[in-house]
């Protein structure tokens, strides 16, 4: 309890909380990187309706990243803007979970990635909404409402592909198999998150894991598919250790901005 009040007092005095800033950057990076991956789908989706749906989801995710980055800039004492975080950091400084950067693959891989992320994000954002920080609680409530729509989109497609044709069922199962080893990282609690959770600043992501497992288990079973049980679980994203493909994603994201130093946009 002493820790909690000390941290709270420190935060109140300086308005700074580097731990919380680092945590919000992780969440912001999840949203931005997944949004960037979804942008790669636009004009390539199976139907025009899906071009529209995926762009809608990408737009919400970029919006979440902007809010989280802006808040982080106020908390880490650097005063950085949303664009500083997105465009002026090196690859190793991004701390998104690896699942969000997984290459799109076919539509089923993207649906599987959406399924695991959206169920996690709704649960975690709702938990944030119950937290002590009014701004963060407000964000959590709003973002959870938005991601709940993305979750319905993912649930519907998982079901449609799982119960559609033999080919779609095969691809959907392969999609689940592809993303599942990257899901554990979403719930990982390292020292940073443990400190924040112990201080009551934010909920620990591990707290939402049982609900997540139950929910996605129901969707997957309802689609006639099997929840994978991978022996290997990836980690590293929260420490800035990414997949090789991530360098290309960041290079693309930042290319214009870096070509025009000192530019205003």
């Amino acid at each position: 309890m002493t820790t909690t009040s000390d941290t709270a007092a420190e935060t109140a005095r300086t308005g700074q909380d580097p731990d919380l800033a680092a945590h919000l950057l992780r969440l912001g990076d999840d949203a931005l990187v997944l949004g960037q991956r979804l942008c790669q789908w636009i004009t390539r989706a199976p139907t025009i309706e899906e071009d529209l749906a995926l762009s809608n989801i990408a737009l919400d995710l970029v919006g979440h990243a902007r809010t989280l980055y802006t808040r982080a800039g106020g908390l880490d004492g650097t005063g950085r803007t949303e664009d500083d975080y997105a465009f002026a950091r090196a690859d190793r400084e991004f701390t998104n979970a690896l699942v969000t950067e997984l290459p799109n693959g076919d539509f089923a891989v993207t649906v599987a990635r959406q399924l695991v992320y959206t169920h996690y994000a709704v649960l975690y954002y709702r938990a944030l909404a119950d937290g002590p920080d009014p701004d963060l609680a407000g964000f959590g409530a709003r973002a959870a409402t938005e991601v709940a729509f993305h979750r319905r989109h993912a649930d519907d497609w998982t079901r449609r592909l799982g119960l559609g044709t033999p080919e779609s069922a095969r691809r959907m199962q392969a999609g689940l198999d592809r993303v599942w080893p990257y899901t554990a990282e979403l719930f990982e609690e390292d020292d940073l998150v443990s400190r924040l959770a112990a201080a009551g600043t934010v909920p620990g992501p591990a707290s939402v894991r049982p609900s997540w497992e139950r929910e996605v288990g129901e969707v997957v079973a309802g689609a006639g598919l099997t929840v994978p049980a991978p022996r290997w679980q990836a980690r590293g994203g929260r420490d800035g250790l990414h997949l090789e493909e991530f360098g290309v994603l960041v290079a693309e994201l930042q290319s214009v901005r870096r070509q025009f130093p000192g530019g205003t946009w």
Partner: peptide, 26 residues
Amino acid sequence: WLTRAPSLHRKSVLIAKVQDEAGHGL
């Protein structure tokens, strides 16, 4: 250019625009 928009504001604007175009098509 969606993946290369040079600010998050411009990225949002461009995503919304391309999304509108899909809607117009529909």
